[in-house]
Design a protein around this nucleic acid. Structure first.
Lengths: 223, 223
DNA sequence: TAGCGGGGATTCATCCGATGTTTGCGGTGT
DNA sequence: ACACCGCAAACATCGGATGAATCCCCGCTA
């Protein structure tokens, strides 16, 4: 194509060149479209596309702003794609997660703070095999997120977060509930938290590998 | 927002529900906009956004089609984001690559076919420290891509491809050339290929770790 | 009959102008 | 000093007009 895609590229270049920085406000639609030499309609298409992947933030009645442009961008972009691949090749996506999650936990083991360890403990409080699925999913998400955050790499955190979308997580925990495997899975969480507290990185890595692989094989059989 | 985002969601749901499948053609703009209850202009914004992340493929004068919806989607989405983070936090992105690349190579070691090994050999033919930067980048890209493809996980392949965009690669090889470190890096490629040929997965993993880490530390010092 | 070319129909590309809605901000009055 | 009001700026959405690319059917020709 041409005009609209050129506009996307030009905006991207303005970002790369530092002409536009995070938090900056873009010129009004009319002015920017004149400057880039296209119509408002076409410019709006470009802006909309950049808004979908969270590069721009459009505030009605106010203006269009550049987002923080941090690692969370990865999350948005990947999550959208992952959501579309739900039934199809979840297992391949899971294989990626099986690589990343233990490595992340390994890194986290040597960096995690006592505050984060406390958070991890709090995340498990009040969660047992009688907790309803919705809350279990929230717990699971938080548990893994605290660990990935402790690894100190925002991209890793975003990627892991996006790779197992909440839809997949919900399905898994629903399945675990039916199979009465919730207690077992929660025990794995507990073991991981304990090993993290002791700073035993190798054990953490092994436990996480077992944990993820367990879920993976459950998923494989469930499909 | 409202109308346009609703349209994006509705199209996404049509995909999830199987109402639209890969390769399908969407109704014409006019018809679809009527059906979704919005104007053509607004619908076009939605379509444009979905086109940016390669979910839809618009062919002028023909129609709008659903793409193959395969793992390559990840590539497009991630590559766009990565490109925007060039100067900023390349090192964090590299850390992710350092996790994925050895693990991928490890998997590839037990799966790689003789045809792929031959490809790997061919990719190294005619490449030496006198090759110009552009060709070195192409070689590097191909080398790592053959290995990730051999691992048999399309998402892994896409992700790795996207994680080290060609811009970063170009910068690295330009730097390696100036530092007269090209021969050394190519020798590492050779060693990796040899270990793959012997099926020594552990060695492959170690070599790749060394390889990536070497580049990473060069990059760290160059920033 | 097979192949080729033309022309109309379909569909997207782009632009324009009008109108509605939301937000931010400054002025005003108490 | 504070609360309210109203204007101006900026995005949201619409519908129509025109252009350009593509597809496909139909008729012509060898």
């Amino acid at each position: 194509m041409a005009v609209t895609d050129e506009a996307i590229d030009k905006i991207k270049e303005m970002l790369l060149r530092g002409e536009l920085k995070a938090g900056d406000r873009l010129p009004p639609e009319k002015e920017l479209s004149d400057r880039l030499g296209l119509s408002r309609s076409s410019l709006r298409e470009a802006v909309k596309a950049l808004e979908l992947i969270r590069v721009l933030d459009v505030r009605r009645g106010d203006g269009t702003y550049v987002t923080s442009l941090d690692a969370k961008l990865l999350n948005e972009a990947v999550a959208f794609v992952v959501e579309l691949h739900q039934d199809k090749s979840i297992l391949e996506l899971f294989e990626v997660r099986r690589i990343l999650e233990p490595a992340t936990a390994f890194i986290a083991a040597s960096k995690i703070s006592s505050a984060e360890l406390q958070e991890l403990g709090a995340a498990m409080d009040g969660i047992d095999e009688h907790t309803d699925v919705e809350e279990l999913v929230a717990h699971d998400l938080e548990f893994h997120r605290i660990i990935s955050r402790a690894a100190g790499n925002a991209y890793l955190e975003s990627l892991l977060d996006a790779l197992s979308g909440s839809t997949v997580r919900a399905r898994i925990w629903r399945g675990l509930t039916q199979d009465r495997a919730v207690a077992h899975t929660l025990a794995e969480h507990k073991a991981i938290a304990d090993a993290l507290a002791r700073g035993d990185a190798e054990l953490v890595k092994a436990l996480v590998t077992v944990h993820i692989s367990g879920v993976e094989s459950w998923l494989r059989q469930a499909l």
